[in-house]
């Protein structure tokens, strides 16, 4: 009973990695590539003054801004993820990790190499890293804490798909592999890939996704998983005997087509909690229980059906087909000028 209480108190402090920058950093961050991953603009450390005195200076500022924007394209791109706390996605609580906390950062490339990731603590606190390979990177922030006889391990995970169409599409088939790393974290959740996925895949509203929980390389049954969306919806599920939960993102976005932004990303966050009775050693002490909290955030876009129409496509296609056939027929008929009226019977 006591255990449950502590657990529920701790659950309030879900820590997760988010792609959405805090308001204060918005100007220094850009959305990079097809998957709109947050990346730093070059020279973001210098603060820019915002003139608001009169219209002239605003213009000047705008021109200046335009010149500086996108200037970092082509150079090394620093991608960032923000550390957030709490289960509200709309009202983000951006936090930082102080040095007293026991934390660990990991970034694994699609080919399984460990790559550099660092915690930057300036005015804003974020994780900074580079994505040089094509495919899914896994980023982990693991925080360990011992309370009573339980070891609490908070894993904030992000699956980041790195792809730029400008680099070509030759490794198309390698977009899919699902990687999980028991040597980094014994408990892990991965999003299952659809068979048709490629580097351009992005979840969309209405889409069904499934997530699979692992513990020590085996599927973990009955894991409590809660899904929080930007719109404020939440749903708690438990994994089945295959360690899976199925999620369908609600198609709750209805607007006129002129107002619909097909590139708008709606974020969601997934939090899983799992307690195991397994002796663990931590800082010289043994703990009979381990409580894992794993978070993972990603986004989805409006469904294609909300802004495209196959029927209209077919209508245009068929109309043009019929009109052009008729046009050719009429043209040929009208060209029956002298001597052309002599037609041969092919049979």
């Amino acid at each position: 009973m006591a255990l449950f209480l502590i657990q529920s108190i701790y659950a309030q402090e879900i820590i997760w990695l988010s792609n959405t920058p805090p308001a204060s950093m918005k100007d220094n961050v850009r959305a990079s590539g097809m998957h709109r991953l947050s990346a730093l603009k070059k020279g973001d450390t210098k603060k820019k003054k915002v003139y608001k005195t009169n219209a002239d200076s605003t213009k000047k500022f705008k021109r200046k801004k335009k010149k500086s924007s996108y200037s970092s394209y082509g150079a090394v791109t620093n991608y960032v993820q923000w550390i957030r706390k709490g289960n509200s996605i709309q009202k983000p609580a951006y936090i930082c990790i102080d040095d007293s906390t026991d934390y660990q950062l990991k970034l694994i490339s699609p080919t399984g190499n460990e790559e550099k990731i660092e915690l930057v603590k300036s005015k804003n606190c974020y994780l900074k890293f580079e994505l040089n390979e094509e495919g899914y990177y896994n980023a982990y922030l693991i925080i360990k804490k011992a309370i009573g006889d339980t070891l609490y391990i908070n894993i904030a995970k992000a699956e980041l798909l790195s792809h730029s169409c400008r680099n070509g599409h030759h490794k198309k088939l390698e977009a899919r592999p699902v990687m999980h790393y028991p040597e980094i974290t014994e408990f892990e959740i991965i999003r299952e890939r659809h068979p048709w996925e490629d580097f351009h895949y992005f979840s969309s509203s209405g889409e069904k996704e499934s997530y699979k929980a692992f513990y020590k390389d085996k599927v973990a049954e009955n894991v409590k998983i809660t899904l929080y969306t930007e719109k404020g919806w939440s749903k708690t599920m438990h994994t089945d005997k295959n360690g899976k939960v199925n999620v369908q993102f609600l198609q709750d976005y209805f607007s006129k087509w002129q107002e619909l932004n097909k590139r708008k990303i709606h974020y969601y966050m997934l939090a899983a909690e799992y307690t195991v009775q397994d002796t663990n050693e931590y800082k010289g002490k043994t703990y009979p229980y381990v409580h894992y909290t794993l978070t993972m955030s990603d986004g989805y876009r409006p469904a294609r059906t909300m802004y495209t129409s196959m029927v209209w496509g077919l209508i245009v296609f068929l109309t043009v087909t019929i009109v052009s056939i008729a046009g050719i027929f009429i043209y040929k008929e009208r060209r029956k000028k002298p001597y052309k009226e002599l037609k041969f019977d092919e049979h």
């Binding site: 002129q258 619909l260 932004n261 097909k262 294609r304 495209t308 129409s309 209209w312 245009v316 296609f317």
Partner: peptide, 17 residues
């Protein structure tokens, strides 16, 4: 058949598709 569509996002996409 997913490439048969008209994209109603904005005027440009309508024209192009």
């Amino acid at each position: 058949t997913s490439q048969i569509f008209i994209d109603f996002t904005d005027t440009t996409t309508i024209i192009m598709t």
